[in-house]
Nucleic acid binder design. Structure first.
Lengths: 164, 164
DNA sequence: GACAATTACATAACATGTTATATAAGAAGT
DNA sequence: ACTTCTTATATAACATGTTATGTAATTGTC
């Protein structure tokens, strides 16, 4: 077995390691979403959640809320618009702004998500992380090992009928 | 100020949050590398470190060591080859394999890195994280706030003459 | 020893982020 | 009111990862 250098180098490669772990968790999260037939890339979820929680928002507001740059937000919003999950209309007072709101379809999806998929994901991730308590690097190691031991998906309590 | 939804949602968006934070740290790390005139994208660093530590490796070995997929490794190795930092030669025993080793220029860069930039980066990241100890989410919050408070670069002890 | 399975790398298509920069609308100063 | 500054979004170019799939070399089987 080849040594895991990123893990080994500790603080020196923390950025790479966090990113890698985040990507892994996002991918696993995607699988749980799929199980719930929520056909949406997991990166788009925070946007829907933001609009759900904060109400209709401009693109810039969403970028700040989700923590990505404005071009990133613009693109994701375009994708959500293509999927008919959000409605984008120029603001009345300020023609530069675009106000993004959930369509009926979008609200529906959020409702289903909130009821089933989100609790499942949260439960799975909590199961993975909640009892951790030491220094950061040790916790990361524990999470990495934990994911190998049992993928997030297995830790999710399916609210739908599981396919065994 | 718009609320940070990813932070707010806790375990539900942990993947996104880790990834985002990792990207941020990588970007900051890049700036420290630049300060030391190590003109190399920070994502390529783990590959050089792996070869330095483990000796010449095949592309597949490097992919495992660094924790990316094989196509990812292939591309990064091609870039490093273009920069003349590594040498790629087909293996003698097995023509499918390619063995990647450091060139003189590559060894040089690693040596400089080890002496100056790496300790600076490690120091900065340690300064950011080492006293953290609670649950994961709290530590992440502390790191995010810490980076806003004082960017990684300021936490790095420059080994070169600082440009003050 | 020929054929099938496996392994190692390459390539294509795409996801998701970034920085840099353009464009158009609004705000401000004279 | 006109020019200038600023702000909101769009677009382009690129970084860095992924999955899916192709191709060539090696291994294993009859």
């Amino acid at each position: 077995m080849t040594e895991d250098i990123v893990r080994r180098l500790g603080y020196l490669t923390l950025g790479t390691r966090l990113r890698r772990l985040g990507e892994r968790i996002q991918a696993d999260t995607q699988r749980i979403l799929d199980d719930h037939e929520l056909a949406i890339p997991s990166a788009q979820f925070p946007f829907l959640a933001a609009i759900d929680r904060l109400g209709p928002q401009t693109i810039g507001d969403l970028a700040r809320a989700v923590g990505v740059t404005q071009p990133g937000a613009t693109r994701t919003i375009l994708q959500l618009e293509e999927s008919k999950l959000v409605l984008v209309v120029p603001s009345d007072e300020d023609q530069r702004r675009k106000v993004v709101s959930l369509t009926a379809k979008g609200k529906d999806l959020v409702m289903v998500g909130k009821r089933a998929a989100w609790p499942a994901i949260e439960h799975a991730v909590r199961d993975l992380c909640h009892k951790l308590n030491g220094p950061l690097l040790d916790q990361l190691t524990a999470i990495e090992d934990g994911l190998i031991d049992q993928p997030l998906r297995h830790r999710a309590k399916l609210k739908k009928e599981p396919n065994t």
